[in-house]
Amino acid sequence: MKNIAIFMALGLCLFMVNASGQSQVSPNPNASSNMNMLVPIIKAQLEALGNPELLKAQAKYFRELYLSLKKQGFTEEQAMQIVVALASSRTTT
């Protein structure tokens, strides 16, 4: 579960860096200043993602989703693929 949180946090960081880079029309001489302003925000988000209560709720959600998919007739492999795809998509949105 810790690996998923780390993966999600890294994805969030990459998304934020990518989004900030796309919003610039021309090279910005204050880019390093802008990046320095993002550091506390990114740190706060990573700390929030590492919150044990959040991780427990997230684990419960993915477990229940997996079990529900199996009950609906998906194979174990199919259910796991769906859960992994959903978890991965949350890191890029």
Rank of each mutant, 00 (worst) to 15 (best):
42 I>W: 02
78 Q>W: 00
38 L>D: 09
80 M>H: 08
54 L>W: 07
42 I>H: 02
79 A>V: 03
58 Q>C: 05
55 L>A: 10
85 A>R: 13
84 V>T: 13
43 K>F: 12
68 S>A: 15
86 L>W: 00
77 E>P: 01
40 P>E: 08
55 L>M: 15
44 A>P: 03
76 E>R: 13
42 I>Q: 07
69 L>S: 08
35 M>I: 11
77 E>I: 09
62 F>E: 07
72 Q>Y: 05
70 K>S: 00
54 L>M: 10
48 A>C: 06
77 E>K: 11
41 I>N: 06
63 R>F: 01
83 V>F: 06
83 V>E: 02
81 Q>M: 10
53 E>Y: 06
36 N>S: 11
59 A>V: 07
79 A>G: 03
57 A>K: 13
65 L>E: 00
83 V>G: 02
35 M>R: 04
57 A>C: 01
45 Q>P: 00
41 I>H: 06
62 F>N: 05
88 S>F: 11
47 E>I: 12
71 K>C: 04
40 P>Q: 07
62 F>R: 05
67 L>S: 15
40 P>F: 03
67 L>M: 15
72 Q>D: 10
74 F>L: 14
45 Q>S: 06
54 L>S: 08
66 Y>I: 03
40 P>N: 08
88 S>R: 09
63 R>E: 10
78 Q>P: 00
87 A>L: 07
41 I>K: 10
50 G>W: 11
87 A>R: 01
55 L>H: 04
58 Q>M: 14
57 A>T: 05
74 F>S: 08
44 A>G: 12
87 A>I: 02
61 Y>T: 15
44 A>F: 12
73 G>I: 08
82 I>R: 07
84 V>L: 14
64 E>M: 10
77 E>N: 05
89 S>W: 02
68 S>D: 15
69 L>N: 05
86 L>Q: 09
61 Y>F: 15
60 K>D: 14
47 E>P: 00
82 I>C: 03
41 I>R: 08
67 L>N: 15
36 N>Y: 10
40 P>S: 09
82 I>P: 01
88 S>G: 10
45 Q>K: 07
80 M>V: 09
77 E>L: 08
83 V>Q: 03
66 Y>S: 05
47 E>L: 10
42 I>E: 04
81 Q>D: 14
43 K>V: 14
51 N>A: 11
36 N>E: 15
75 T>F: 00
75 T>E: 00
90 R>L: 09
53 E>M: 04
65 L>F: 01
53 E>S: 06
71 K>I: 02
65 L>R: 01
44 A>Q: 14
67 L>I: 14
68 S>F: 10
36 N>T: 11
59 A>I: 07
39 V>Y: 04
83 V>T: 05
51 N>I: 07
